[in-house]
């Protein structure tokens, strides 16, 4: 490919190739502070390419390819090349990673103990994680949390946080603009702007954390905390995992252990301030 870069996020080494310079340039800026080992072979490959040769120049549109692809995925305009790269990276991890149990969940940690937040997009799990990451917590990731089948620890996947819509202004108000990516307005997923995690979160990305709390947040409605049984947490997390079935018995063992050892709650919150307070309260009770 004409342009390429390498990015290590948590345990995954990516190789990203592109027909255009722009997506690679912006990735290089967002990931400049990440540890880089150019001799390490890549676990996953992403390709951003023009579906037809003339699409490199004429209304350029980015097709997402790589080791794993979604058939019939629609291309994105070149101005959204960064989103295409993010989607390509997510896809490789979601479909290809086998070393850990992969949860579609955000996570933060304090004193070596992790809070894992699982929910659909719109649940606010990414926003909560991003805000906690600016407020005394170590951001472990806004999209994926990995569970080590051997020891049960949570491992971080702190990619650049993908802030969406209202969360953009909320987070931008609290961070240095140098830590923000370009505003991608009007994408199929709404407005998107990336946040570079704090340097200490990146530096700690290989440090495991013991799960302390499983949360299933829901944005909107009155503040509420609802304890969740082990069985329901198990079922919800199998649904939130893209590789549970592929892992076989180690995945089963890791998940039963996780829900047995970790208290789980559904939480509702009307605004971020309330959400953060609920997390703080439940965490304090969990590690007491």
């Amino acid at each position: 490919m004409r342009h390429s870069t390498r990015i290590a996020v948590g345990p995954v080494q990516f190789r990203i190739g592109s027909d255009w310079r722009a997506p690679v340039a912006v990735l290089d800026r967002l990931y400049a502070g990440y540890p880089r080992d150019d001799t390490r072979p890549a676990d996953a490959t992403v390709r951003l390419f023009a579906a037809r040769p003339w699409r490199r120049w004429l209304r350029p549109s980015v097709q997402i390819g790589g080791d794993f692809v979604i058939p019939d995925a629609l291309p994105l305009p070149l101005s959204m090349g960064l989103l295409a790269a993010e989607m390509g990276m997510n896809l490789q991890v979601a479909l290809g990673w086998r070393r850990h149990l992969l949860l579609h969940a955000s996570a933060v940690a304090r004193d070596g103990r992790a809070v894992i937040m699982s929910g659909e997009s719109g649940s606010g799990k990414s926003t909560l994680a991003a805000l906690l990451g600016e407020d005394g917590w170590r951001l472990m990731g806004d999209e994926f949390t990995l569970i080590d089948p051997a020891g049960g620890d949570a491992l971080a996947f702190p990619r650049a946080v993908s802030l969406k819509n209202a969360a953009i202004a909320e987070v931008a108000a609290r961070v240095d603009t140098a830590r923000l990516g370009p505003l991608l307005a009007g994408t199929p997923k709404g407005d998107i702007r990336h946040l570079i995690p704090r340097a200490d979160a990146i530096a700690a990305m290989h440090e495991p954390a013991r799960p302390a709390l499983l949360l299933f947040p829901r944005f909107g409605g009155e503040a509420a905390i609802e304890p969740m049984g082990e069985g329901e947490a198990f079922v919800r997390l199998t649904e939130a995992s893209t590789n549970y079935v592929a892992l076989g018995e180690p995945g089963f063992a890791a998940l039963t252990r996780l829900v047995r050892e970790t208290p789980a709650f559904g939480i509702s919150y009307p605004d971020s301030t309330t959400g953060l307070a609920l997390v703080e309260q439940l965490f304090a009770e969990a590690v007491r």
Partner: peptide, 21 residues
Amino acid sequence: LPPAVAALFADQRAAAAVAQA
């Protein structure tokens, strides 16, 4: 093998065993 490749290959062997079952 380089350690990263050895680890990836171990993952692949384990996953293939599950898929084959």
